[in-house]
Amino acid sequence: MRPPATAARRTTGDGAPVEVRRSARRTRTVAAFWENGTAVVAIPARFTVAQEAEWVHRMLEKLQRQGERRSHKGRKRPATDGALAAHAAALSDRYFGGRAVPTSVRWVSNQNSRWGSATPSDGSIRLSDKLRPMPQWVIDYVLLHELAHLLVAGHNAAFWKLLEAYPDTERAKAFLEGVSFATSRGLEPDEA
Results as ranks from 00 to 15, higher is better:
155 H>F: 02
68 E>L: 15
124 S>T: 14
100 A>F: 04
45 A>E: 14
6 T>P: 10
75 R>F: 00
135 P>K: 05
22 R>M: 03
22 R>A: 07
102 P>E: 02
97 G>M: 02
161 K>S: 09
158 A>I: 09
88 A>D: 05
90 A>L: 03
37 G>C: 05
24 A>E: 13
26 R>V: 08
180 S>N: 14
55 W>H: 12
22 R>T: 02
186 G>N: 06
62 K>G: 13
138 V>T: 10
114 R>F: 06
143 L>R: 00
162 L>K: 02
59 M>E: 01
16 A>C: 11
132 R>A: 09
95 Y>V: 06
166 Y>K: 03
45 A>S: 15
26 R>K: 11
38 T>L: 10
5 A>C: 13
11 T>A: 07
150 L>R: 00
183 T>C: 13
62 K>R: 15
23 S>Q: 09
12 T>H: 08
70 R>C: 15
45 A>V: 08
51 Q>F: 04
143 L>E: 01
9 R>H: 11
106 R>K: 13
52 E>F: 04
54 E>H: 12
166 Y>C: 05
133 P>Y: 08
152 V>P: 03
180 S>Y: 04
31 A>N: 11
161 K>F: 04
71 S>L: 02
85 A>C: 09
116 G>Q: 00
126 R>S: 09
52 E>V: 09
43 I>N: 00
24 A>N: 11
125 I>Y: 03
142 V>I: 12
6 T>A: 15
30 V>H: 08
29 T>P: 13
18 V>W: 09
16 A>E: 01
68 E>W: 15
160 W>D: 06
141 Y>I: 07
103 T>Y: 07
132 R>Y: 08
103 T>W: 06
109 S>H: 14
51 Q>D: 10
152 V>C: 08
86 A>G: 11
126 R>A: 11
29 T>V: 08
94 R>M: 10
116 G>A: 01
174 A>P: 03
55 W>Q: 10
152 V>D: 05
44 P>F: 04
33 F>T: 11
107 W>K: 00
101 V>W: 13
86 A>F: 04
168 D>R: 13
17 P>T: 12
22 R>E: 07
146 E>R: 01
16 A>D: 05
63 L>C: 00
163 L>H: 03
107 W>F: 05
69 R>E: 14
159 F>I: 04
16 A>V: 04
108 V>K: 03
64 Q>L: 12
66 Q>V: 10
